[in-house]
Design a protein around this nucleic acid. Structure first.
Lengths: 194, 194, 194, 194
DNA sequence: AATGAATGAGCCTTCATTCAT
DNA sequence: CATGAATGAAGGCTCATTCAT
């Protein structure tokens, strides 16, 4: 009996986050009223403020939730002894697939990062990363900084890499795995001499 | 006499557009009230509705204005008999420079394109372009479609091309012309086999 | 025609102030909702914010209004060449009468001065006074400070003087002019040796 | 055993009362939410309603608490065979000292008595007093009513007496014992011919 | 007794838009 | 063309109170 309930409190908190995600994606931040959030999440207008201090906090919580989901996806399917290039290509594919299969979340990220919400806390790329890929990140730099990539500014490298994966995933077309592999290789061609 | 006429009316219309651009960039769409727009544009709340049917229309007009500015910039400094690669690299540089020197406008584009405003009229790449570069565009395609580029999906090509120019221009770092050239070449490496 | 209208705008502003005075006195600051203020003042909820920045500002305006009324009353019926004592007694009577006939305003003052509203701007007695009575005020001090009154702390003098007039005016009983004169004399006995 | 019992329950009740006193003084009646009261009193939002029927009841209880404290103070330091004047002056000093050393409580009284809370039950002066001073009160009246004081309306007498003590105690200045004695004498001059 | 999540009415304020002048 | 007072629906948020546990 006791087992069955995953903490009713956590459930409500998550329902609110999940509902806000939907709402924001469907209608934008400013057309996502707390009243509607409440109704759709099956809560009263008041309780939300039991879990979150303000609308902004709810939105921030959605962001944290999405970011964590994303990070998790990025690290999937890595073979233990793969080369750096292999690891990179796999990660590119992961990124694309995550964005592709989480259009709601991706759309939210776009909205959030283009809003005035996160002007204070810019998502440091490094902060996004877990120890697991610390080693990967060491190589993921221009040669001039001890990495293995072309001597391009780091932001440029990021852009040719995961930036393009994200932009592409949002397009209407769906890449099959062969096309995706080509795109990943094109991205590799942009950032690496090998 | 007739010449002189254009001014007062056009000026006010333009003042409104320009002011809305500022406002939106500074504060976001939903913190850009018509009342403030009026005050800053030196107009009354009422007159704005003589020039535009609604707030949305003002914003749409800003978008058109910015898009036209951008297109103009893209075509600069093209030498008459340059190779396709040369033309491409120049255009990449143009794009970067436009975004770089029009951060306000670029920010507006980001906001606009990420808003629920233009969900109906997605900016078709082709629609952006003027006859001048019709010929350029013929080559700017995968070989499989009669162009000269890698066999990648067109949106992917766009993304590796101008998409990256735009993303990079928004970063804090400013590329000097040598770095920029390298980046343009990296982009070329992504999309072309040559 | 034009003569008849005392500026419709001023009228509405004043209607709002007057209505807020009523409301606050009847129900207290926190049971005087803007919605009710609007309804009773014959305005929409929105316009009030055309005239005042916030509820607090409305209340502040009421205070200024009341303070000005009060000052005016204090200076009435002063004979040109009366002695200081005569002037004082008249002023005491004026104060009593003002408070007595402006119970609404007096009640408002009590509420306002006991609220957290004016914690910042404590009504300096001196600031309340106009040049007219500058000379009177010179004498209205303890001898030790160049005045003609007992050597009591100034606030004590104020309290025995106008403080008591105000407190008394709020009581249920109404003093007739002979009783009032006695009270004024009692107050004089408290502050003066003559 | 029975003795020990009083503690836990009474303590919580008192903690609530004491905390509400603080809260109201710090923030006013309407910025003293039950939720905050609960937190600061170390109770849950719910239990408060086991001890009090409503927020208003809590506030009423605070008032009763403060009034009882005050009465106790008023009667201190009375010498057995002192004259009426001596007794009066001592009481004046007591009053001043109570208010002076209980600014929190005094502030609460001001707020309470100026609120819409107690419009029904105005604190009858007589009701404030205990048998101990019944005799004192017999003399504390105008001659015309069998007392020993000036023929002034009773409320006027009260006002010149303890009213001024209270007002003065709230001022920033602190009277030393000699100044305080002078003030008490000034008050005596206002109400007595002797 | 005690907890604290839940309710929901109501508050202050904003703002796109209209319209008499 | 221009003004700016006026509207009124909505929005975010608070808080006294209740009630299942």
């Amino acid at each position: 009996m006791a087992l069955q309930k995953t903490t009713p409190t956590k459930d409500k908190r998550e329902a609110i986050i999940e509902t806000m995600l939907d709402l924001v994606v469907e209608r934008g931040f400013h057309d996502a009223p707390m009243s509607l959030l409440a109704k759709r999440a099956g809560a009263s207008a008041g309780v939300i403020y039991h879990y979150f201090a303000s609308k902004d906090e709810v939105i921030h919580a959605v962001y944290l939730h999405v970011k964590s989901l994303k990070l998790q996806s990025m690290l999937e399917n890595q073979l233990p002894n793969s080369s750096f290039k292999q690891a990179y290509l796999q990660m590119y594919v992961n990124a694309y697939n995550f964005y592709r299969t989480h259009l709601r979340e991706t759309r939210f990220l776009d909205l959030y990062e283009n809003s005035t919400f996160c002007d204070a806390n810019p998502p440091t790329p490094a902060a996004d990363l877990q120890p697991d890929i610390a080693e990967f990140m060491k190589s993921f730099r221009p040669k001039s900084e001890g990495g293995v990539l072309k001597n391009l500014p780091l932001p440029a490298i990021y852009e040719f890499a995961f930036g393009t994966a994200r932009q592409l995933a949002k397009k209407d077309l769906v890449l099959d795995s062969s096309e995706l592999k080509n795109v990943a290789l094109a991205s590799w061609a942009a950032i690496s001499d090998d």
